[in-house]
Design a protein around this nucleic acid. Structure first.
Lengths: 343, 343
DNA sequence: GTGAAAGCGCTAACAA
DNA sequence: TTGTTAGCGCTTTCAC
């Protein structure tokens, strides 16, 4: 069913039908009602391409997924972010255009978005310090919002971020309050903005209690199960092993728990693990069972907020940059039963 | 830069430039070379919408992500699948059009794909037995490939699936060979095709050794950490608790490991866990450390194969349905050290 | 309040 | 081998 046919059925011009469907005011209400009904009855949907060509808008938001040639790992928060953003997009008639590219080609993907006019805006994922994509997108004049921040120049662009520094500060304080003195940090790659902020929060909490951060207890790397396992195993084999782990991702935590399990017998006592990851959150319920509550996921919420912000920017590109800093929950998981060590 | 401008610069007609760029044979090589160079120099990329409108193809593949109103969980294999499929798409000039919808609206999403002509084909994720989407897509005449299978009518459509039955049969045999006699199965929802096949494999392996599957040791439900934790905890509290767990997803495994850890002291011995999930694979290296090798992920490979198959179907819609059955690796992870129980 | 016609940027008959 | 011309399905001036 195309507009022309619909117009013929209604014995109206294409123009009037189009106007009726798109909510233009100059259409008589009776006409509009009739048009709407017939359109619905025939399940008429305008051709996206034709509409885009005529309006200059594509009603799609671009997301670039860079596949690292190094480690072949997909950003684990991506699925949840998309779920949140997708809610907002779809209720506003937008689709998501995904471009999967080798990380070295990422800039090219944005250029292509621009020259092929296939998206109305983009979301930038996983920013590094001084991420070059920001200047690129500005020069291409593509509306964009960053999920996270890219270093200290925070006023130059719009972003939505979690307060990683504060979260890790609180998580570290939590463990300190339980009596832990040797707390290991298993962090993501420090080239990523969020990882640096997390470390700063961790260090600040230790320093506030006159504990000097120990490089041996701090690791920055790929957030995989393997890294979690290897590093936790190594740390637990030290002469004075950590009594608690602060871990930056769920994947790593799986490995950490394995290492703790294996070391459990020789260790002769329990070890605390605090996961601090954006993509899940725990809540204690009455049964003292941690519950996986994806609904409360900060990442999904970040996705929603990014999407809302981007659509507003697209509607009014001249507004100044905006930003949102989210506080995330503290997520606590014990490895082998409640294992706080007092004093 | 648009075709018209490019043609003017080159002092050629739009047609010739278009033909040169699209590899039509009737263009003189010298001309083509000249066109290519100038196009590159001006970073010319055709407008996707205009091209689509003229050719009738959108150069995009649709993926629908249903967000369950019930449990708000994103299909965990989705990210990896997209990574694999995306490789194929992008090297063939295709993009991914993502539509995030409430699960009850999923059929509508396909109808919209059709009537708005925004995709050239779709991939169906997470099929149920007798999934209604298959008949819908057939009636809409949208080319599609199913990731997984939808019950027994396997010749009616094209699919790529992992041999879930055989995988779980092997995994169960593996545990039986180690001497385990009480093996718990923590499975996904049985409305999902893959979960049913997995259970069948598990049961077949037990029955082959004259062990009657015990309903108390079998659970089918959401594949979340919470479910893994709850069910493992319950089972471990039984009078004769399982000595091994066969778990259907990574998320659940995290919960299972927690439960085993907590029960460890009272249990007084180790428990084996075998994860069998498509989205990860373990390989033992020299150090006897399981390695997370996303590169070898069956899901990513399935994504590639689905994409290849779909592009071939789009190119030649009249071919009969094809299918691929993948064998997946056996993935073994021990919970608290190597814990096989002999005899 | 409605319609005719031009045009968005491209491709593909048909001509030359 | 190249060019002319007519669409693809929609929106949007401009005229009525």
């Amino acid at each position: 069913m195309k507009l022309k046919e619909l117009a013929k059925i209604l014995d109206l011009s294409q123009t009037t039908v189009s106007r009726a469907l798109n909510g233009y005011p100059e259409v008589r209400e009776a006409t509009r009602k009739r048009v709407m009904e017939v359109a619905l009855a025939h399940n008429y949907k305008p051709d996206t391409r034709a509409k885009g060509l005529a309006t200059g808008r594509s009603m799609a938001i671009g997301h670039v997924i860079p596949l690292s040639t190094q480690h072949e790992m997909v950003n684990p928060v991506f699925a949840d972010f998309i779920a949140g953003a997708g809610e907002i997009y779809s209720s506003n008639g937008y689709d998501i255009l995904l471009s999967v590219v080798a990380d070295v080609d990422e800039e090219n993907a944005y250029r292509k978005f621009r020259s092929s006019r296939s998206v109305d805006g983009v979301i930038v994922h996983g920013p590094h310090a001084d991420d070059p994509r920001i200047d690129l997108l500005k020069s291409l004049e593509i509306p964009f919002v960053v999920h996270g921040r890219a270093g200290e120049n925070e006023d130059r662009y719009s972003w939505v971020d979690v307060n990683n520094r504060h979260s890790f500060l609180r998580a570290t304080e939590f463990l300190l309050d339980l009596g832990h003195r040797k707390i290991a940090l298993l962090n993501g790659l420090e080239s990523m903005d969020f990882a640096r902020r997390r470390r700063e929060g961790y260090e600040a909490a230790l320093l506030a209690r006159d504990i000097k951060p120990n490089p041996i207890s701090m690791v920055s790397g790929e957030m995989t199960e393997e890294q979690g396992y290897r590093n936790a195993k190594r740390m637990l084999a030290e002469s004075t092993p950590p009594t608690a782990f602060l871990v930056s991702s769920m994947n790593m935590t799986i490995g950490v728990r394995r290492a703790i399990g294996e070391a459990g017998k020789t260790l002769g006592r329990d070890v605390s693990v605090v996961i601090h990851d954006d993509d899940i959150s725990y809540l204690k319920n009455g049964d003292d069972i941690p519950i996986f509550t994806a609904a409360r996921s900060p990442v999904r919420q970040a996705g929603r907020l990014c999407a809302e912000m981007l659509l507003e920017i697209i509607a009014d590109p001249d507004q100044s940059s905006r930003n949102i800093l989210l506080e995330s929950e503290l997520m606590v998981g014990m490895s082998t039963g409640p294992a706080p060590i007092k004093g």
